[in-house]
C-alpha cells in the first residue's frame, strides 16, 4: 500500500513538472488548432526533387519571394541567417524553405546564386505552374504579377511576407510577420525544437 502511495505521488509530481513547462507563450501568431502542412512537392536550386516530408523531424520555415525583389526578400533571408547563427547547434534542426513567386525569371541557377549570399543551406524551390500554384494556395502566398513599365524590373511580384513555421511532426504552427524581432523568432523556434 505504501509503495502504491509513493508511486502515485511520484506520478503526480512528474505530471506537475511536465505540465508546467508546456505553456510557453509563442511570440508569433499561433495557428489554432495546428493543421497538417501541405506536402510541398517542388524542385530545389540543385534541380533535385524536394518534398516537405524530407525535412520531417526539423522545424521548417517556409516563405515566398523572388530573386528580383531586392528589399523584403533579402531582408527576410538576412534575418533568418542571423536567427540560425543565434540558434547555434539547434540550427541543424531547422530547414529554411524559400519558394519563388517568379518561376519565369527564377531559374535554379539564379535561385542558387541568390540564396548563396545568405545561408547556403537554404532550400530554394521552384516547379511547374500547377505545383507552385498548389503551394501558393495552401500557404496563402497571394502571389500576383504587377507590370511596372516605369521600372527597369519590367514587372514585380506582389506577395505575402509571412513566414509559416512547420513543426517537427509536419504541422503548421506559427505565422511570423515581416519585422518580427530576431530574438522572438529564435525563442519560438527553440521552443518548437524542444517539444
Amino acid at each position: 500500500m505504501r509503495t502504491y502511495h509513493m508511486l502515485f505521488m511520484q506520478l503526480f509530481l512528474t505530471t506537475l513538472i511536465l505540465s508546467g513547462c508546456t505553456s510557453y507563450a509563442f511570440k508569433a501568431a499561433t495557428i489554432e488548432p495546428p493543421d497538417h502542412a501541405y506536402n510541398v512537392a517542388l524542385m530545389d536550386q540543385n534541380e533535385k526533387e524536394f518534398t516537405l516530408s524530407q525535412v520531417k523531424g526539423k522545424v521548417a520555415l517556409l516563405f515566398f519571394g523572388y530573386t528580383n525583389c531586392p528589399d523584403v526578400c533579402p531582408a527576410t533571408l538576412s534575418d533568418l541567417q542571423i536567427v540560425l547563427k543565434r540558434l547555434g547547434k539547434n540550427a541543424t534542426n531547422v530547414a529554411v524553405l524559400f519558394v519563388t513567386v517568379d518561376p519565369e525569371r527564377d531559374t535554379p541557377e539564379r535561385l542558387r546564386r541568390f540564396v548563396s549570399l545568405y545561408d547556403p543551406a537554404t532550400i530554394a524551390l521552384t516547379g511547374t505552374t500547377d505545383g507552385l500554384t498548389a503551394v501558393y494556395q495552401a500557404y496563402g502566398a497571394g502571389a500576383q504579377r504587377r507590370d511596372t513599365p516605369e521600372s527597369a524590373l519590367v514587372y514585380m511580384m506582389d506577395h505575402t511576407s509571412t513566414i509559416t513555421v512547420i513543426d517537427k511532426q509536419g504541422m503548421r504552427r506559427l505565422l511570423i510577420g515581416f519585422g518580427t524581432p530576431i530574438d522572438d523568432i529564435v525563442s519560438d523556434i527553440n521552443a518548437l525544437i524542444a517539444e
Binding site: K27, A28, A29, A75, S78, D79, I82, T162, L175, I176, G177, F178, G179, T180, P181, I182
Partner: peptide, 13 residues
C-alpha cells in the same frame, strides 16, 4: 504578431 503593421518593418535587418 506584427504581420500587417507597417511601422515595425525591419528594425533588425
Amino acid at each position: 504578431n506584427s504581420a500587417g503593421s507597417n511601422g515595425m518593418a525591419g528594425p533588425m535587418s
